[in-house]
C-alpha cells in the first residue's frame, strides 16, 4: 500500500468513527501534580486540570453568558430559542421539562441521537455564567459565596463531586461527547485544590 492509499484508508476509518467510539479526553488525577513543590502553584495546577471539565461544552452550554442556553460542541444558540425564566427552569409556559425529561431520551430518527435529560435539568443562575470567562475568573467565581449560591468550599467540593446534574456531563446521552475523565477524578482534583488553599491563578498572569 502506498502512502496515498494509507492516507485514504485512515480518512475512511476516522470518518466512520462515531462520537461513541471517540477516545475519552483524559483528566489527570491529583497525583500527577505531586512534583510541584510550591503549594499555591500546586493548588492552581489542580484547578487548571479540573477546568478542562468546567470549560467543556457539556458544562458551558448551561452556564451561558446570557439567560439563553447554547448547544453542541460549538456552543451555538439553543434551538428553539428558550429563556431561563425566573427559576432557571424555563418559563412557566415553556419550561425546560417540555423537552428535557428526567433522563436522556433516545430519539427515533434525525441527526440528534438523543435529547438530554436529568431530574434537575436547569440552567445555571446568572451569577454562575462561565462562557467567556478565563479559568482564573471561573476559579474566583466558584470561591465567591455571593456568586456560587452561598456555598462554602466544603459544599462546593461535595456538590461538584456528587451532584447528579453535574454528573450528567459524563453521561450526556448518545451523540454527545462526555466531559473529560470521570466525576470521581474531577472530585478528587477539586478536593485537592480546596485542601491546598483553593488558590486561583492571578487574573493578570
Amino acid at each position: 500500500m502506498n502512502r496515498a492509499h494509507a492516507l485514504a484508508l485512515l480518512c475512511i476509518v476516522f470518518a466512520s468513527m462515531s462520537l461513541a467510539d471517540a477516545p475519552l479526553e483524559p483528566l489527570r488525577a491529583p497525583q500527577a501534580f505531586d512534583s510541584i513543590r510550591n503549594r499555591a502553584a500546586r493548588s492552581n495546577a489542580y484547578f487548571t486540570e479540573a477546568a478542562k471539565v468546567l470549560q467543556h461544552p457539556r458544562c458551558l452550554n448551561c452556564h451561558p453568558a446570557t439567560r439563553t442556553p447554547t448547544q453542541g460542541d460549538d456552543l451555538h444558540p439553543h434551538m428553539p430559542l428558550v429563556q431561563a425564566g425566573p427559576e432557571n427552569r424555563g418559563t412557566k409556559e415553556l419550561p425546560c421539562s417540555s423537552c428535557h425529561g428526567p433522563e436522556n431520551a433516545p430519539t427515533l430518527g434525525g441527526r440528534v441521537k438523543s435529547v438530554p435529560g436529568n431530574e434537575h435539568w436547569s440552567l445555571a443562575p446568572a451569577s454562575m455564567a462561565w462562557q467567556g470567562l478565563t479559568t482564573a475568573q471561573i476559579c474566583e467565581q466558584i470561591k465567591d459565596p455571593k456568586r456560587n449560591g452561598n456555598r462554602t468550599l466544603a459544599q462546593i467540593e461535595k456538590h461538584l463531586a456528587e451532584d447528579h446534574l453535574v454528573g450528567w456531563a459524563w453521561h450526556p446521552g448518545e451523540g454527545r461527547a462526555p466531559a473529560p475523565g470521570t466525576q470521581e477524578v474531577f472530585g478528587q482534583l477539586i478536593a485537592a485544590w480546596v485542601k491546598t488553599g483553593a488558590h486561583c491563578q492571578q487574573a493578570s498572569l
Binding site: P80, S98, C99, A105, T107, G110, V112
Partner: peptide
Amino acid sequence: GCGIALCGACTVHIDGVPRRACITSVKS
C-alpha cells in the same frame, strides 16, 4: 414533525405542562 423535540408539532399537556410527546416515553 422532527422526532427530536425541536419543532413542537407533537405538543400535548401532561399534568397541565406542555410536553413533546415524541421524546416522552410511556414509562415516564
